[in-house]
Structures are given as C-alpha cells and as structure tokens.
Design a protein around this nucleic acid. Structure first.
Lengths: 181, 181
DNA sequence: ACCTGAACACCGTTCAAGT
DNA sequence: ACCTGAACACCGTTCAAGT
C-alpha cells in the first residue's frame, strides 16, 4: 500500500516532532530548548520542523493542545466529586505544565497564536467553573467575578508552588467562602 | 571639583541606563528590547551596559526596584482607605508593569536574581495584605491562605486585564466574602 | 509534497585594548 | 576605574536546491 503510506508517514513525523517538543518543553522549558534540539530528538533537520510548523510558537500550541486534551480526558474521573476536589485535580493535573503557563503568559504579547490559545483556554476553564457554581450563585451578577477568582487562584497555585497542605488550605478557604457562602 | 566628579558621573550614567531600560521595558516589553537599544537610548555602547550590570536580568531587577519604590511611595495616599480601595490602587498602580509581571514569572526559572526579587516582592505583598486583614482573621490559620488568595487575584487582574467595572466587581466580591465573611 | 545544507539576521555576552 | 571596537557563540527562520 504505497498509496497512503505517505500521509501516514507525514502524520507520524509530525507527531514525533510534537512528542520531542513536549518532552523538552515540560522538562527544560520552552525558552531554553532550541528548535535544533527538538529536531535532533525527533530525528529530523532543524528546518524540517518549519515545514510542519509555522514557527516555534505554533509548535508550542500543538504541545499545549495535546496536554490539554489528555488532562480533559482524565477530568471525567472527578466529574462527580465536590468542587474543592475538582479544583485540586485541576491544579495537580496542570502542575506538570506550570512552567508552560508562565511561558504562555509572557509570549502572549508577541505571538497571536499563543494569545488565541490562551483566550480559548480561559473560556473553557470559565465554562467548567460556572457549571459547578451552585444555582443561587450561577445566575447572580457575581458569577462572572467568582469564576474569574477561581481561575486566578488556580493559576496562582500553579505558578507559585507550595506544599500540598498549603494548596489545599487555599482551595478549601476559597470554595467555602466564595461559592457556598 | 574634579575629585568627586567621577563618582557623580558614574551614578548618573547608571541612572540613564536604568531610565532607558525602564522606558523600553514598560513600553515594548523586556524580551523584545535588545540591550543594544537600551545602550543607544542611554548614549553608550552596548558593552558599557555590562560594566554596570552583570547581565540583562540584573538590569531588569534595577528597573523593578525603581518601579516598586515609586509605587510604594504613592501607597501612602491610600493607607487609610478600606481594603478594597487599597487592592484597586495596587492593581491600577502595578498595571503599567503588567507585562513585566509575566516576564518576571517566566524568567524566574533561568535567573536567580529575578527569582530572588520575586520572592522578596511576595513577602512584601504578604506583609502588607496581612496588616489589613481584620483582627479575627489575622491570627486565624486561614490568614496565610487568605493572603495568598489576595495576591493571586491581584496578579490575575494584572495579567488578564478587563475593564474597570469587571475588576472592581472581582475585588468587591473577594473582600466581602474572604475578609469580612 | 517533503526534506536538506547552508546561509541570514539578530542577540546576549566577552575580551583585548585603550584612556 | 571606565569605556570601546570587534568578535564569539547561539538562536529562530529562510531559501535555493534536491528527491
């Protein structure tokens, strides 16, 4: 079957590049890993990466999408749990990409793709959070503000890591005061 | 007075470099402004910058210190105001450096000086916040968590700018639920 | 369509040399 | 002590050329 062997190879090679980028971005950080290293790890030349991706930022978005899809697929396991559990899950789940969170924020200004992905991510997070606000709060004018606060706290917990106990105390206080107050 | 003319000139030239860096960092962003442009704006050669500063990150710290000192000196004007006013002041005041906030976070991993400054800043913010927590909350075990939440929300407001009304709604909700709850 | 070798433009930083 | 011209090492990206 040489007919569809090409498209297969193409998708595979793209995936290998993304896989290499993902491993290096998560382990070492985005700004610190040269495209040349990603290419080497994926077994291609540096400029081959640019045949698959417009630039390094697009490659980052591909990695972020992969990470997000996987995290979302695991989200089902806590779908029925109370809100604090869900927030803790989100924090622990996203903590592997905590360095990427900072990268996304700092590259948002110079990269339209990253900015776009960031906006989409917050819309998703907002929808997820609102779905968990109790009915009384959900329609209230404060729903928007409450959801924003939850997002800010999650981001804060990601980028300012402390110990598990501290994180839990923050989440418990947040939920008890803000949501079920 | 040629005797002390040299040290004067030194301090002045250093200040000019910091001033140039500050203007460019705030207007254009840290990662986007080359040291060469800072030098040109200050009327020196690129490598002269490296006589005054170990590297670009140290220069950023000098700028941050300047910005912080000035913000702090203006803080007196709201020292007596209620907490929501203070938080809004902090947000508006720091909003001119909102891009720098992201830069600090993303460079923390690779730059010890930046990491150090970041730690110090959060300690200061924490002390300031705790001083404003009502007595009942201040000694409570939740004081630490409450202070962290305030910091996270301020950072979130800085880096995810919305309109004034939205910001105020978030701050009002935060204070009413979290502090005076 | 897919991939490469070689180059370009740029940037942070250093160094030998001057005063 | 202070400053410079010139270079180094590195990086993201491009391009002409191959298959």
């Amino acid at each position: 079957m040489p007919a569809n062997r090409r498209p297969r190879a193409r998708a595979e090679k793209r995936d290998e590049i993304v896989a290499a980028a993902r491993a290096l971005f998560v382990a070492d950080g985005y700004e610190v890993t040269p495209v040349s290293r990603i290419a080497a790890e994926a077994g291609v030349t540096t400029n081959t990466v640019y045949w698959y991706f417009a630039d390094k930022d697009h490659l980052l978005v591909a990695v972020l999408e992969e990470l997000l899809v996987e995290a979302l697929s695991r989200y089902g396991s806590v779908a029925q749990a109370p809100l604090p559990e869900k927030i803790m899950f989100a924090v622990e789940e996203l903590s592997s990409m905590h360095a990427l969170v900072d990268t996304v924020h700092s590259r948002r200004a110079s990269s339209p793709v990253i900015d776009e992905w960031h906006t989409g991510f917050h819309e998703l997070a907002d929808a997820l959070t609102r779905a968990d606000l109790p009915a009384e709060n959900a329609e209230a004018a404060s729903a928007e503000a409450a959801s924003a606060i939850v997002a800010f706290v999650v981001e804060g917990l990601l980028t300012h890591p402390g110990d598990e106990a501290g994180r839990r105390a923050i989440v418990e206080l947040l939920v008890s005061r803000l949501v079920s107050g």
